[in-house]
Design a protein around this nucleic acid. Structure first.
Lengths: 143, 143
DNA sequence: TTATTTAGTAATAATATATTTACTAACATA
DNA sequence: TATGTTAGTAAATATATTATTACTAAATAA
């Protein structure tokens, strides 16, 4: 039943919300918008041009000019010309930008492994199997 | 192996990011902060006082006074005194606020069911089983 | 009871974000 | 080639968010 399946998917989102919330609770020197940009680059896992970021974050490209150039000045991202389109500029995470994200992930990681103790061994095995299955199938669905 | 398990959990987050991104791409008349508040109330699924929202969204309570009172004036939330603490005020989603969230969920729902066609019947059954398992176990872990 | 902490409000100034208009260079197409 | 479109930049203005300080009323602890 497709309906039941979609409901399980929808239910998954609030279940992960705690972790997402955690991701955004950071004590960096970056503004909200700057954090969104770095997070978006990190999630998509490839360099993006301003148009893509603009569309993905639903903000005007004019805003990004400043936001991204600030990020570049402070070493969080690097800009390089897009070989496929001489008008476009590709934005990629610099090591300093990746660090920020890795720090957030490690907090999520720690919280998760801590809570894991509330499950017994069998449940932990079940969870691993189920998570793996979900990841494989969701990836296939996106592609 | 706890490590592998945590990695699967971490991998799940970018897999759901597309849907989260979708949730935030709305054409409402609300500001970012107002949207965050409504989203947070919707995710936690119970009335919250300003302190809880403030802590959850990592913003100062002083900001919330205005944000929430605007939301109240426009009918997205309702405020009522907390019976357990006469200083506190509980904020709950009004029907108009719930509508906004339901519209977002329905977009996610539609996108998901559309992509589902990329999986065959067996994969769909597997996904449903795995999602259910993940939801049950993550809920148990949080509690 | 008295002292201290806490939830919420309020007002101000400093930053950040959003909107509008306009421009350049590169791209796409008739 | 001529025409219209697109990616990015720029600057000015309006609005939103953040930070700081201060206050009230209720809760809590000594």
């Amino acid at each position: 039943m497709k309906e039941e399946l979609a409901k399980e998917y929808i239910a998954l989102i609030p279940n992960l919300f705690g972790s997402f919330s955690e991701v955004n609770k950071n004590a960096t020197a970056l503004s909200h918008m700057q954090n969104h940009v770095i997070e978006y680059l990190s999630m998509l896992q490839r360099p993006l041009n301003l148009k893509e970021i603009s569309a993905g974050l639903d903000i005007a490209k004019q805003q990004l000019t400043n936001v991204v150039s600030d990020l570049e000045v402070h070493g969080y991202v690097v800009k390089k010309p897009d070989p496929k389109d001489k008008r476009a500029v590709l934005i990629a995470l610099a090591p300093k930008g990746k660090e920020i994200q890795e720090k957030k992930w490690s907090e999520i990681y720690n919280r998760f492994t801590h809570n894991l103790s509330k499950l017994n061994d069998e449940e932990q095995r079940d969870l691993q199997f189920a998570l793996h299955k979900v990841n494989v199938l969701l990836t296939k669905m996106e592609g």
